[in-house]
Design a protein around this nucleic acid. Structure first.
Lengths: 241, 241
DNA sequence: AATAACTTGCACACTTATGTGCAAGTTATT
DNA sequence: AATAACTTGCACATAAGTGTGCAAGTTATT
């Protein structure tokens, strides 16, 4: 009696699961109180089916937070500029691409029930921010009239506001988010403008591998980056079954 | 048959009604989802009694918003500094004293159900802010890299974050809120520090009537102002009946 | 002291949302 | 083609919140 080898999940089920996560991200970004039913339906599934993929609401939220945090933390590792001002600007610019995820993370992070979990998940990003700010304070390139901890919170709030409370479809949206963060970090608006002019790559393409820093970056790479980000890929398309 | 003259409300009832408003402000500032029961109990009343004073949840919220908005709008009128930077700083400083009310207004304003009502109630304050920002842009004392409308939103968000997301008991809290707003308006952190040093009255007493602009303003006025504000006068004391 | 105003507690109806069990149908996989 | 996996719709139990009616008690006001 060989224990029957457990067949692996069906492909449509895998897709549906991913669809739920995606739909939930979009739905919660739009309304933190979105019901399970709303989420399931916007993923093209029945409420009942959703419970076949996630034990309960918390399990779903936990995974969303985790996914978002992983993106953020990976981004944070990518920012290696020695100049604190530049590092902060670039970090904001990259996070801006993850608007929907930032929105969701912010919503859930404000909820007492998930405060601890979100705190843990976002720790690497927060550490990275703190490190950048500390570095900037040490070399005098960032404000020193506020202690690092408080400054970190203010910068985080400013970034969140600029990323999530401004129409992301506006062409200046990204630049605006970056300038907002820098302002909060102590720079004057003229300094932020000058910095962005001196470092056009910050608002441009993410400077892939050894690619040439041409005028306009390869459309492919740019599109790919924007594809899985920004608006948060709402499926709306029906799920398979 | 003279129609019996309707006796006017009992004093304890008047007090209880005020107590509910006060408790609701505090409760909602702490948790926008606070239940009617929670509010009533924290006002020292039963849930049932609350419905004797307010038709429903909306009526209660509407009055809270109105009360807060009136405070804000009155404050806005008090700020008459010609210098836009100074005006913005003073406005923030005065609003900081209304932390609990700012918190509540922000919570309710984010709710779709009350978006319209809050928008109307807060219109005067928002107009005042827009006017200040416009003035600053015209004379070049505030940033001009962002249009007034967007700048107004960013400043509002920054102020809200600084006022409500920072421990108000910290001695630097007020100064921090002011500097945050100025930073968002385009000043460098050194400029904000300089401005506050040049205008110590902004963080001090509200410069009553024609009073002398002495070093430290009359303690009486200061205490009175802080009394009905900041922490949001949580009653906790039982209601009379 | 009489009266009207107010509060309380309880019962009740109603709504919204969560989570589960189950039978019947559909689809991917073998 | 057979089978296991998946989805659906329905019923059901549970929970929490809202808003109202009513009788009984308490308190301010006249």
């Amino acid at each position: 009696m060989t224990t029957s080898a457990p067949r692996r999940p069906r492909q449509d089920a895998v897709d549906n699961r991913a669809g739920i996560l995606s739909a939930a991200t979009a739905a919660i970004a739009h309304d933190p109180q979105a019901s399970i039913n709303t989420i399931a339906r916007s993923a093209g599934l029945s409420r009942r089916a959703l419970y076949g993929h996630f034990a309960d609401r918390n399990a779903l939220l936990a995974e969303i937070i985790d996914a978002g945090a992983k993106r953020f933390n990976r981004i944070a590792l990518d920012v290696t500029d020695a100049n604190a001002q530049v590092a902060l600007a670039r970090l904001t610019s990259l996070l801006w691409q993850q608007a929907a995820h930032v929105q969701v993370a912010a919503s859930i992070a404000l909820d007492d029930a998930h405060l601890e979990a979100t705190g843990k998940a976002l720790a690497p990003l927060r550490h990275a921010v703190a490190a950048i700010l500390q570095r900037g304070q040490n070399d005098g390139t960032l404000r020193t009239d506020v202690d690092v901890t408080t400054l970190a919170r203010l910068v985080e709030e400013a970034a969140r506001a600029a990323i999530t409370r401004v129409d992301a479809s506006l062409p200046e949206a990204r630049s605006l988010a970056v300038r907002t963060t820098l302002s909060m970090a102590g720079l004057s608006w003229r300094e932020t403008v000058a910095l962005l002019e001196a470092h056009p790559d910050i608002l441009g393409a993410p400077a892939a591998d050894g690619a040439a820093p041409a005028d306009t970056a390869p459309a492919a790479g740019d599109a790919a980056t924007a594809g899985d980000a920004a608006t948060g890929d709402t499926p709306a398309a029906g799920a398979k079954r």
